[in-house]
Structure formats: C-alpha cells, structure tokens
Design a protein around this nucleic acid. Structure first.
Lengths: 234, 234
DNA sequence: GTTTTTAGTGTATTGTTGACACAATTTAAT
DNA sequence: ATTAAATTGTGTCAACAATACACTAAAAAC
C-alpha cells in the first residue's frame, strides 16, 4: 500500500514552552515528572503526535490538557532532531511556543500534572535537549516582542501602560524610559482607552487599555521596531 | 526496550526550498518528478530522514545531492504536519529554506534530478502542500531580508551595489531610490571595497564589494531595519 | 566628439528617537 | 487637615535618520 517501503518511521513528539508573566517576572510552566522515563526530573510539557492528528491540533491538545485553555497564543518554534536526543528511542520533537495570561490557567489541571510556574532565572536543569529548546524560545521571545505586538498575550485583557512596561523590562532585563515608552506605544494606535482605572494601585491609578483587535491583525505583520535601539545590540 | 510502546511511528520527510537570483528574477530550484508517486508533476526537492541521521544533516545531504554544494545558507523553516498531507502514508515534513549563489551549483547533478530553475511568478502548481511551503518561504524571505544581511547569500562573492539593489527590488517588487539605498547600505559597515570594478557592465563600471565576514557575524542578530518604510505596509 | 546609459555623491526638509523635568493623583502617616 | 511618598501622565529640545530630489562622472556605441 505505502509508496515508501524503505524509509524509517520515527516517533514524533510535541513539546510546549509556556510563558507567563506575574507582573514582575517572566515564568515558565514546567513539569516535575512523576512518570517514566526520567521520573523526578524537570521537563517541558509534551506528548506524542497521534497517527491521525494534525500537528497543530496535537499542540493545542497538549496545551489544553495542562492549562485547561483553548484559545492560547501558539506558534510553532522549531523541530529538534538530533539522532540521539532521546536515549530511549529515536524521536523528533516539534517545539511550540505559547504565551498565556497567567491568571487564566486551570490550577487544578496544572496541579494534577505536577507542574509549576518557575522564574526564568531560577529554573532547574531540564531533561534531554529541553534546555536548548528553552534557550531558543527565550531568544524568540526577545526577538519577536520587539517586532510584533505579542507582549499583550502575557497580560490580562485590560492592562495599564506601566504594566506593559514592566513586562518589557522583564523580557529584556533593561530599564526603559517611561515617557518615551508611552509615546511610542500610543503612537502605534493599537491601544484603546477603556475609560477605567486600575484599582490595584496603591498610588495614582493608571488608565486601563485594551488591544484594538482590528489594528492588531493588520499591524501584526508590519514591522514594529518597538524597542529602543540600545536593546538591539544585545 | 522502548519506553513508548503505544505511540505512533511516522515518516519524517525533509523538503528543501532553494532560492537563487539570476540578476533579474528570484528563482526556485524545482523538480519535475520522473519517479513515483506523482510522477510527471512538479515538487520541491525532498527525501526521508534516516533512522540514525541528525535532522540538520539530512537537510545538508539532500541539498548536496541536488546542488553539489556543501556550504549553503540553510535555515529550518517550519514543519508541516496535516494528517492527510501525503495521501500515500502519514508523513510529517520538515521544510528547510536555502539560499544559493546560482552560478555555483553543479549543473550535472541538477540535470540528473530533472530539476530546473523556475521564476517565482511563472512557477507551476506543485504537489501536496508544497505550494503552501513555497508561500511560507517567500514570506520568510521578504521578512528576513529586511532585518538580516541574508541577501548577500544570493549574490556572488564579489558584487556591486546596483546588483544588490536589483536583488532587493526583485524580492519586494518595488523600485528603490538608488541614492538612499546606497547610503543606508554603506552606513552598515558590512561592505568592503575590493578596489575592483565590474567588467560585465556596458557603461560605467560599478565598484565590486565583498562582505565583511566579521561584522556579518556580529551584526546578524542585531536588527537591521534595512528596507524603506514604504515596504513595511505590504 | 556626441549621445546614451549607468554609477556615484550631495543637500534640504521632514519625521523620529532619546534625554530630561515638571505637574497631577492617590494613599498613608502625622 | 496637611504633608510626604510613590506613581502616573505629559511636554520640550537637540541629535539623528529617512525621504525626496539633482547634479557630475565614466564607459561604450555611433
């Protein structure tokens, strides 16, 4: 029946890198494995592609299992295919990059998978080549958050400009001038003033904005060139 | 022996999108298939990942088979994994994006694979989802050529500024102002004047430059923001 | 030597970025 | 109530970059 009798059939895994932001630090959703192989060690959330399943659907399935969320921002990042990357059996892993609003996740589902939100700078060693996958995802986040309006995916529906600035400062680990940041951001025309104010603040309450979803779509593929030039040499 | 007895083993293909530039048009190296399946139709150059082969090595092997070249500019582009994308058997395809200096390729090897250089705008329909792969690659080329110094990979070792301009005009399908292009390009510091002149010209001979390979490396990951803003809305 | 074609450089205007300062709002402490 | 501390919102100026546009130089064809 098959046209390709001589070729090798290989396991195809899906691994997900899930970023969140708690208002202060960028975090990763990682799994302390209570199953084999490598039980007890830390890894990314993953699984295998089913025989009759679209690759993108597999990623959505795995993300849903862990977070209980269906409408997550997901991109395919890169496929890792070193011959010996999984010592158990030859496995090619397609890595997906996800950004979620950290308060939206289903904490029961997370707990049942033995998963936790871990700050980037205090993360444990991960199994296999998952370290490289995370490094690649961080690079991708830094690169793309400066060119496309993806940072919003890590914030609540309604957010303030100072919140967004703290997010960018966390991503790039640099201080940003408030005034220039605000001017550049508002000039994109992507933000809509909701008229509301943030009540969490202990001092002056900041204006709550939401994304203009029409402009978001049309502006996504245009270049944004958002961050200050000082960041570009990093 | 294996830890994953229940998971499906799947064929992993590698497909290569190979761009060239003849001084006038962007071209693709495509195969008129004289083998099954889909014999007689056009497709990308491809093959299967071997059981003990690194994914990146597989791409290099396939590119070498077709072009006779070893040091090609290659990036992994995207993995295509619709369940029914290959009607013969479930196959996941990892697509690679390659830029080559069109005069360097081994024309014997190309001929023996029944391959030809085809202009982007006159290309035939391709099999399976190869059309989408090409569309994705063109998008990638347009996006990345504006941000990184990758256009040089399509030109000879020594090239002139007018040649490079024609390349960019072909990529974006827009006219570019010579004076602004030249100023912006030289200000990157990436070009070294070889002191030679281009003899192919019928009129005033243009200066031949080469890439400063040290600066190329350090500047690659910085953003370039090279093209005029008019292009960004495309 | 005149014409045609292409290469190379200059400048004035406009827009954008970066550095920096001050005024306004809110809560908590006195 | 008044003041202090923290944080938000907006304004200005100088430096730099981008755009639009015009002239000079070199080479070959006649």
């Amino acid at each position: 029946m098959t046209n390709y009798p001589q070729a090798s059939r290989i396991l195809v895994a899906i691994d997900c890198i899930i970023f969140g932001f708690d208002g202060k630090d960028i975090k990763l959703l990682l799994i302390k494995r209570n199953f084999e192989p490598e039980k007890g060690k830390w890894s990314l959330m993953g699984g295998f592609l089913n025989a009759d399943e679209d690759l993108a659907d597999g990623a959505v399935r795995i993300l849903y299992n862990l977070t209980g969320l269906k409408d997550i921002y997901v991109e395919q990042l890169e496929t890792f295919g070193k011959a010996n990357r999984d010592p158990g059996e030859r496995t090619v892993s397609v890595v997906f990059f996800a950004l979620i609003k950290i308060d939206d996740h289903d904490s029961e589902a997370v707990k049942s998978h033995n998963a936790s939100w871990i700050s980037l700078d205090t993360r444990p060693k991960l199994i296999f080549d998952h370290e490289q996958m995370v490094a690649r995802a961080i690079e991708h986040l830094k690169y793309n958050a400066a060119l496309h309006p993806i940072g919003f995916e890590l914030l609540p529906e309604r957010f303030t400009i100072p919140q967004l600035q703290k997010l960018y400062e966390a991503i790039y680990n640099i201080p940003i001038d408030r005034r220039n940041f605000s001017r550049k951001l508002l000039s994109t025309g992507l933000l809509i003033d909701t008229g509301q104010k943030n009540n969490n603040s202990a001092t002056k309450k900041a204006t709550l904005y939401k994304l203009d979803s029409e402009k978001y779509k049309t502006k996504f593929h245009s270049f944004w060139n958002f961050m200050p030039d000082s960041m570009k040499s990093q």
